[in-house]
Design a protein around this nucleic acid. Structure first.
Lengths: 341, 341
DNA sequence: TTGTATGCGTTATCAG
DNA sequence: CTGATAACGCATACAA
C-alpha cells in the first residue's frame, strides 16, 4: 500500500538503462535517442514515476516556487490581483507560494524565511519591505518584483499602476464636467497607492487652486473599505459648502459613501455630486452603484509582473527596471462623460 | 556579493561543533546543552544561516507545503475562503501552495503533479477530483481534505457546510413568514454546494407541496454570479403567479436579482417578495442589498479543515472523518424576522 | 551530550 | 548517445 515512491533509479532498472539516462529523458534539451527515451517513458508511466522536486531543487539551487507576498486580502482588489498573479505564475510553469503578512510585526524576518525555499522569485504586493530585505534576496540571487510599493529601488524591479496620473485623470474629469468644489478621500493609514493617487489629484488641480477658480481638499476616512466610506459620508455632506465632486482612492470607499448618500440626500441632490472611484472592482459595475472609476488593469499588471520576473531570471545583472501601467477612466453614472469628450 | 549560501556545515565550523550538532540545535525536541546551542545560534546568526528546505524535505520525505486546490476565484466567497485557508495554513507553521484548476481539462493529471512536492497535505475546494486521484495521494501518504465537494469518500477526510440543511433553513424561514409561492434558483452548471442547497430547500417543503398549501419550483440561471441574477430577474418577475419568496444558492445571484427587480418593480412590490441568499459574502451586508442570507462560516470551516489535516498527520491510518458545519440564518431586510421568532 | 557516517533523489561533469 | 560518479545540504542511526 504505502510503498516507497518510484525513483529515477527504479525507472532505470525497469527500462534497462542508467539512472542518468532517465534523468536526461525528461530534459527536452538533452539529446537522447528516441527509442531510448520512449522506453524510459513507458517504464516511468508504468511505475507512476514523478520527479522529486526537492532533489531537483537541491541540485539546481532553485525551486519552481514563486513567493507571492500579500496582505489585506479583505480588499477585493487585492484579492482579485492575487488571483491574477496566481494564474500568471502557473502559466509560466511555476508554482505560487502565498504569504500573507497581515498584522505582522516582523515582516522582514518573515520574508527572510522565504530564502529557505530557493524561490525562483518573490513578488511583493504588500508589506513595505525595507531596502535591506530586498538586498538579502538579491544577494541570494532571488529576483524581487515590487508592485505598487514604492517609486524607487536600487535592487528590485518595479511594476506600478501610474497612481499619480490616475489621480490627475480623476481631477481632469471633474474639471471637464465643470465641477469646482472638489474633495479627495483616502484612508488614514497611508498606503503607497492611495497617497500617490491623492497627490496626483491635488497636483493636477494646483494651477486652478492658485487662480481661485477651483477649491479642493483632502479628507481622511478610517480605513480603505465600504464601512469607512459609509461613515465619512455624513461628514462630507455636512460640509459648509458641499463638494460637487468627490474622488475616492478606492472603489469600496466610494460605494459606502454612495449608500449613505442615498439615504441622506434626494436623488437629484445626489446626482449633482460627481463621484469617481479607483480600481474598478467588480462591485463598481453593479447597478446599485454604477460607479465612474479609474480602472487598474489587474490582468495587464499581473502579466507585466511575470514578464519582469522572467526577464530578470534571464538577465540577472541587468539594471532594475521600472514600469508604470496607465489607469483607464471608465465613465458610468456617478460622473457622466461630458458631451465635449 | 553572490557568494554561496551558508550551510549547517559552515555554521558547524564557525561554532566549533559538528554538523549534526548544528542540525540538532534547531530541533526543539533534541536534547542539546544550552551553551552549545547558544554558540550555534550565534554562529548561525552571524552567517545568516537558514535551513535549506529542499534538503530537509528530501530527508524527511515531507515538505511543509500544503496544496490548496481551488477554482472560480471570481466568486467572492471562494476567494474569501481561500484567504482564510491561507491564514490557517500559516498559523500551523506550514506554507500554502495554491493551484487554480479553472478551465482545466486535465485536473487529475494536474493534481498528480502535486505529488512531486512531497506536500504535507492537499486541500481540495474545487475541481471534482476523481476517486482515483484521492487514492494516489493516500497511497503516497499525503492526506487529502475535501471541502464542499462530495458527501462520501473512502479515502479522504471531508469538511462541508451542511448545505442541505442550509436549504431547509431557507425554506423554513419562508414558511414562518407565510410565504407560499416559492422558487429556488441556482446556476445551470451543477456545483455540489448549490445542488445540495436546492435539494434541501425542496425536500423541506415536500410535505407542504403534497398538501398543496405551498408551491415551489427550481429555476436555473446561467452562472453563479451577479450578472446571471440580474438576467434571471426578468424571467422570474414575469411568471404567471409571481413568487413571494425566492431562495438563491449564492448571494451574488441574489444581489443581481435585487438590482434588476428594483428597476422593474415598485418599492412596495419588491418588498412583498422575500429574498434569501447563501454564504453571507461582504456584499450581502451592504446597504444597497441588505440581504437576508445563510451564512457559511468561512473562518470556522478553514479552522476545521486545518484541524482535520493535523489530526490526519498525527494518525495517518484512522478512518476518514466527515464533518458538516452548520449554516446560520442572518436576517436582514429582504426577509425580516417574524415577530413570533 | 556530541561526533561520525550514511543516504535521500536528482542533475552535472567527465569518460567512453 | 550513454554510463559511472560526484556533489547538493540536511537529519538520523549508531558509536563514543
Amino acid at each position: 500500500m504505502n510503498k516507497r515512491n518510484a525513483t529515477s533509479a527504479d525507472v532505470a532498472i525497469l527500462a534497462g538503462v542508467s539512472q542518468s539516462t532517465v534523468s536526461r529523458s525528461f530534459d527536452p534539451n538533452s539529446r537522447i535517442s528516441e527509442p531510448t527515451r520512449q522506453r524510459v517513458f513507458v517504464a516511468a508511466e508504468q511505475l507512476g514515476y514523478q520527479v522529486n522536486k526537492a532533489a531537483q531543487t537541491m541540485i539546481k539551487k532553485r525551486s519552481d516556487l514563486v513567493g507571492l507576498v500579500t496582505a489585506g486580502l479583505e480588499d477585493p482588489f487585492r484579492s482579485e490581483f492575487l488571483h491574477k498573479l496566481i494564474i500568471e505564475v502557473q502559466n509560466c510553469g511555476l508554482r505560487p507560494m502565498v504569504m500573507d503578512v497581515s498584522n505582522r510585526q516582523t515582516i522582514d524576518e518573515d520574508l527572510q524565511g522565504l530564502i529557505q525555499y530557493q524561490l525562483s522569485g518573490v513578488i511583493i504586493t504588500s508589506g513595505t519591505p525595507s531596502e535591506s530585505i530586498g538586498k538579502a534576496f538579491i544577494k541570494h540571487g532571488t529576483p524581487v518584483v515590487l508592485v505598487n510599493r514604492t517609486e524607487h529601488s536600487d535592487e528590485a524591479d518595479i511594476v506600478n499602476l501610474d497612481n499619480e496620473n490616475a489621480g490627475a485623470m480623476a481631477a481632469e474629469a471633474f474639471l471637464k464636467s465643470g465641477k469646482t468644489n472638489l474633495v479627495v478621500i483616502r484612508a488614514k493609514s497611508p498606503s503607497f497607492s492611495s497617497v500617490m493617487r491623492a497627490k496626483g489629484f491635488l497636483n493636477h488641480l494646483s494651477p486652478y487652486l492658485d487662480k481661485g477658480t477651483v477649491q479642493a481638499s483632502e479628507v481622511f476616512c478610517e480605513a480603505g473599505n465600504y464601512e469607512s466610506g459609509y461613515q465619512i459620508a455624513t461628514h462630507i455632506l455636512a460640509l459648509k459648502n458641499r463638494p460637487d465632486g468627490v474622488f475616492f482612492c478606492m472603489d469600496h470607499i466610494a460605494c459606502g459613501f454612495l449608500d449613505a448618500a442615498k439615504k441622506q440626500l434626494s436623488t437629484s441632490d445626489l446626482r449633482s455630486i460627481g463621484v469617481i472611484g479607483c480600481d474598478d472592482v467588480a462591485l463598481a459595475s453593479y447597478k446599485s452603484y454604477d460607479l465612474t472609476t479609474l480602472r487598474q488593469p489587474s490582468t495587464t499588471m499581473a502579466k507585466a509582473v511575470m514578464q519582469t520576473l522572467l526577464n530578470r531570471l534571464k538577465l540577472p545583472s541587468s539594471p532594475p527596471s521600472k514600469q508604470a501601467i496607465a489607469a483607464k477612466l471608465i465613465y458610468r453614472s456617478t460622473l457622466t462623460k461630458p458631451s465635449s469628450d
